[in-house]
Amino acid sequence: MVSTESVLTFAAMSLLVIVIPGPSVLFVVGRALAHGRRTALATVLGNVIGCYALVVAVAWGLGALVESSVAVFTGVKLAGAAYLIFLGVQAFRHRGEMRAANLR
Rank of each mutant, 00 (worst) to 15 (best):
M1F: 08
M1R: 06
S3P: 00
S3M: 02
T4G: 12
S6T: 08
V7S: 06
T9R: 04
T9K: 04
A12H: 05
A12E: 08
M13A: 10
M13D: 02
L16Q: 10
L16M: 13
I18A: 14
I18H: 03
P21V: 09
P23A: 15
V25H: 11
V25D: 02
L26A: 06
L26T: 03
V28L: 11
G30D: 09
R31V: 13
R31N: 11
R31D: 01
R31K: 14
A32I: 02
A32F: 09
L33H: 08
A34D: 09
H35M: 10
G36L: 05
G36F: 02
R38I: 04
R38K: 15
T39M: 07
A40E: 01
A40F: 13
A40P: 04
L41G: 02
T43S: 15
V48Y: 05
V48A: 14
V48T: 13
V48W: 04
I49C: 05
G50Y: 10
C51I: 12
Y52K: 06
Y52D: 06
A53C: 11
A53D: 05
L54P: 00
L54I: 14
V55R: 04
A57P: 01
A57H: 06
V58W: 10
A59T: 11
W60F: 13
W60S: 04
G61P: 00
L62S: 00
G63R: 04
G63Y: 06
G63Q: 05
L65K: 01
L65V: 14
V66Y: 00
E67N: 13
S68G: 07
S69G: 06
V70G: 03
V70A: 09
V70T: 10
A71W: 15
A71V: 13
A71G: 04
V72M: 08
F73M: 05
F73D: 03
F73T: 02
G75L: 08
G75R: 03
V76T: 07
V76I: 15
K77N: 13
K77T: 12
A79Y: 07
A81W: 09
A82L: 13
Y83C: 09
I85K: 01
F86P: 02
L87V: 15
L87T: 12
V89D: 06
V89G: 07
F92G: 03
H94F: 02
G96H: 02
E97Q: 15
M98Q: 07
A100T: 07
N102R: 08
